[in-house]
Structures are given as C-alpha cells and as structure tokens.
Computed example of a mutant assay.
Amino acid sequence: MQFYPSYLPSPQQRGFNYKIKPNIIRTQMADGHVRQRLVNTGTPHELSVNFIFSDEEYRKFMAWYRKDINYGQDWFYMPVLNEYGSTDSLCRIQNGELSASLNCVNNNGPLWSVQCRLDVEPGIGGDEVWIDPEGWDELYAYIWVAYYTNYEWPGIKLKKNKLGYYVFKLNLLKGYPYDGYVEFNDNNGNTTWSFYSYEIDDWAGRIIKVKPDSSEVEYLSWFS
C-alpha cells in the first residue's frame, strides 16, 4: 500500500470540501411520507482537494502519481481532516483525473495548483480495529473473562472489508462483569497470545498485524 509522500505539501485546508455518503435508499410512501433505509455505512466519502506545489514538487508529485499509484488507479494513505482530527485515511483519485494549472511565477519559480476529487474510506477511529494476520485464511476472535464466557471455541468469525482487512469491533467486550481477553485464531491450530481488553483498547482506530503464537503486535498505521 502506498503513502502520500511526506516530502510533499498536504492538501490546502481552505475550501476543504468533504462529502459524507452513507448508502441510504429513499422510498416514496402512498401517504406522502418518504421512507429512508440505511443500507450500509461503508460507502466511500468524497473529498475535493487542492494542492499548491513548487515546480520541483509538482514534478515529484506527477512522478508519484504515474508510477506509485498507477495514474490514480490505486489506493493510498493520506492525512485527511475528519471527526477524529487529521488522520491517515485510505484515498483514491476518482477516475484518476487531475486538473493542473499554473498559478503564478515568482522569484522562486512557478507555483502549480492541482485539484482532484478523492474517494475516501470512512475513518476507522473509535472502537474499530483493522487486523492483518500473517497468512491465515480465516480469523476468529475468542473472547473470555475470568470465571465466565458465553463464547464457544473458536469464537466470533471476523469478516474482511473490501480492502482485505479483518474488522474487530471493541464493543464485543462491553457489558462483561470482568475484564476481558481476546485470543485470535484461524480455527486450524494457529492462535495468538491472549490479549487483555485494555491492550485491545489501545488498538482502537488502527491497522495492526497480529502474529501467531506471540504477544507481538506490529502497528501498520493508525487513524486517531
């Protein structure tokens, strides 16, 4: 997965236009009322951005655009303003389309303005964790607490999102009379360490890699 280059300026905040797009179906009812039904919340949001580049930065940006994200086809991480602050979010240039214009030429050379619209995956902050296990075909979360559990092994089967990460909701631990533990496994003999609920809380809003038969966690990226 590519990252927006740290050596290039961030998008301009002036005129920042972020469009939240939940997937809602509207149905006109016979009595004149309109019924709205939420289908899912995973629809990418839209973001209009504007970059200001020096001549050298513009050349580097275009090289990254062509080579690293395949003319805008591929997803990449970039800091985006949202309800969690400025967080690394998964972005993609809509249709790969850019609009570049020469703003002015000053003593330091040309200044370029680049505009585009982005698809932005909804931020994962809050109590959601994206997990990337090492080579497992399936992932389960076995949740237990001292003296009590209501889960049978291997636990809850986690689902992948469209970007290929398993999603674990921390609210699975809420409401227990004791502090909880989570043990990830593939229901095929591979397991992780039993992670304490407070440790899981520290993962909120992050992409992490869990390692089999280990207490190690590798942080791939974080969103809060």
Rank of each mutant, 00 (worst) to 15 (best):
I93F: 09
N106S: 09
T87H: 00
L81Y: 13
D74V: 01
K67M: 12
K209M: 14
P22N: 07
S48M: 07
W75E: 08
D132W: 03
N171K: 09
G155R: 02
P154S: 04
G15N: 08
Q115K: 15
S214W: 08
G96I: 04
G96W: 00
Y219M: 07
D213T: 04
C116T: 15
N95M: 10
P154M: 02
N50H: 04
V145N: 10
S101G: 09
N107Q: 14
K174N: 14
S86P: 00
W144V: 03
K67T: 13
F16D: 07
N171V: 08
Y166W: 15
V210P: 05
P5F: 11
E218A: 06
W203F: 10
Y4V: 02
E138G: 01
G189R: 03
K169M: 11
N82C: 14
G125Q: 08
I200F: 09
Q36I: 02
P44M: 06
Y77H: 11
I93K: 02
M78I: 03
E183R: 12
G125R: 06
D137N: 15
A146V: 13
Q73V: 11
R66W: 11
I124P: 04
G205T: 08
S221L: 09
L8H: 09
G85C: 07
G32M: 08
N17W: 05
L8C: 05
Y165M: 14
V120I: 12
I25G: 00
Q12K: 10
P22K: 09
K21E: 12
S197G: 13
G15C: 03
E56Q: 14
G32Y: 08
G155A: 07
Y147P: 00
T149M: 05
V120D: 04
N70S: 11
Y166L: 05
S101P: 01
F184W: 05
E152F: 09
F76S: 04
Q12F: 01
R117M: 10
W153S: 07
D127S: 12
L90V: 13
P212I: 01
I24V: 15
L90E: 14
Y77Q: 12
Y142I: 01
T191L: 05
T27D: 10
Y198K: 12
K174E: 15
S101I: 06
P212D: 07
N82I: 08
E128M: 13
K19P: 00
V145C: 13
S6F: 09
F61D: 10
S6T: 13
S48P: 00
P22V: 05
S224N: 14
I156A: 07
N190T: 06
N185M: 02
V80N: 06
A141S: 11
S215V: 00
V210E: 03
D186F: 00
N150T: 12
R66A: 15
D137Y: 10
I156G: 00
R35C: 02
P22Y: 10
E97M: 13
K21H: 06
H33T: 15
Y84V: 05
E152Q: 13
A100V: 08
K169T: 06
D119V: 00
